[in-house]
Write a protein that binds this DNA or RNA. Structure first.
Lengths: 250, 250
DNA sequence: GAACCGCTTTGACGCGAGTCAAAGACGGTT
DNA sequence: AACCGTCTTTGACTCGCGTCAAAGCGGTTC
């Protein structure tokens, strides 16, 4: 379902904040030079998708790669018994498979979102002409890999409480990315989606959040906003288990 | 602790099998042309490490990237309270960070292993001269990302039984990679390491394996060998939840 | 305003997996 | 052989989280 147009009012308003978070070291257009950017712009297509919509990851048999400009996406991997999110995508990051191999890309928008999409084959050509682009792609992939492994650690061994706290801190870290101290999170996820991401049930998420609120560590002013009241205490909760910031491949 | 030499007898014996599995689409030397291979060979260094040893991921301040020739490695991510494996590395795959950024690479050899290591800076130069090399690196990263997400799905929602079965099938799939039907696994992992990988306790791993054996789905002829007796039944156990083979980025 | 709908919260209950502890198995050494 | 240390197996118990069920919000529609 196509969006009304690039200049739709409500989304335009959110743009400045997203631009700020494009500082992220992992944007495609942000880590290449001017000439590469021009080449990318020639083949790129700005695309807007509505919250909840799936991202169409191939057009006319050609897979696409998208660089998220603003908004938040979820990468979901579905199996017979439902779907589970395996990661989030924040502005400056990338979705899609540059190789277009068996790519059942399942990406869902959690908020209204905008991304620059590139046809796989055209991008491949550009990255052949401009090695810097391929380099940027590699950086992105490694970044995503690192994030995926972060989640593995969190989901693998932690208790429900620790997972929820880790999620909150992680979300704050990734969402802010430029803004100084975002202690007020505007969660685009509903409880069920958080559960998907953390491998927990809806009820457990709710209970944990309420518990944290009762303990005075967070505040829940509305359904979709969470304030990190006592960040130090939150970090201490997962702190014993702080993982070494590591970026390995594979 | 350095290895005796490249021609040590016990490890040489294992080489042919590993060569076979180098069919893997993700080896560095196996998906580039002859001239690139020569360039890589000039800067590469063959390295042998003993089972249990950590891989030194930087030499003289320069991080390294390694392409595994044979053996099995584990990528471990350690935090305050111990360490957890976040992935395995099979022949044809790659370890280390080509960008050498805050790379606390923690890699441990599960078996005696051999890899070609490349100094980060030299590899970077080569990949600048030969785009194909960078392309291969990108492929590797995406492959690893896909594997990491596989684990996320398995660890996120599955029961202990399902995780163990998934691990066995996964291991068979990745280890064999060329060999026709490896229904007899020679596990280089002890129970504890499997637990690390799956986010389960030693005892649970043991109980599940015994349970599967009692059900006649597998056989445990020795401590480190597992026979997949009824593969169909095993696949049915995780089959309801077969994930779509997907390769997304990020 | 009242009536609906989806989401969230809260409670009660049962099961699965972690933990502690002890007893086997296996491999290596002398 | 008999010893030892390491790894594995088995048992008993506890507790966290999933599940089922019902009630409480918001938000939207008429």
């Amino acid at each position: 379902m196509p969006f009304e147009g690039p200049s739709a009012a409500p989304v335009s308003a959110a743009r400045p904040a997203a631009r700020a978070s494009a500082v992220h070291f992992c944007g495609l257009c942000d880590q290449v030079g001017e000439s590469e950017r021009r080449a990318l712009r020639r083949i790129g297509l700005r695309q807007l998708i509505r919250s909840g919509d799936p991202l169409i990851c191939s057009t006319a048999g050609d897979a696409i790669v998208g660089s998220l400009t603003w908004g938040v996406l979820a990468v979901v991997r579905s199996d017979g018994s439902g779907a589970q999110s395996v990661g989030l995508v924040f502005p400056g990051e990338i979705v899609g498979d540059p190789f277009g191999s068996p790519a059942n890309a399942a990406v869902r928008a959690l908020t209204d979102a905008q991304l620059c999409t590139f046809p796989r084959s055209a991008l491949e050509q550009v990255s052949r002409d401009y090695p810097v682009v391929q380099r940027a792609l590699l950086r992105c992939a490694l970044h995503s890999l690192s994030e995926a492994r972060r989640w593995l650690l969190i989901i693998g061994r932690q208790s429900a409480r620790e997972r929820v706290v880790a999620f909150l801190l992680e979300f704050a870290r990734r969402q802010r990315a430029g803004a100084p101290s975002g202690d007020t999170l505007d969660l685009p996820l509903k409880r069920g989606s958080i559960g998907d991401l953390l491998g927990l049930s809806i009820e457990t998420i709710s209970r944990q959040l309420q518990g944290l609120a009762r303990a005075g560590l967070i505040a829940l002013p509305s359904r979709r906003t969470i304030e990190l009241v006592d960040r130090a205490a939150l970090e201490r909760l997962v702190g014993g288990r702080r993982s070494t910031i590591e970026r390995v491949m594979p």
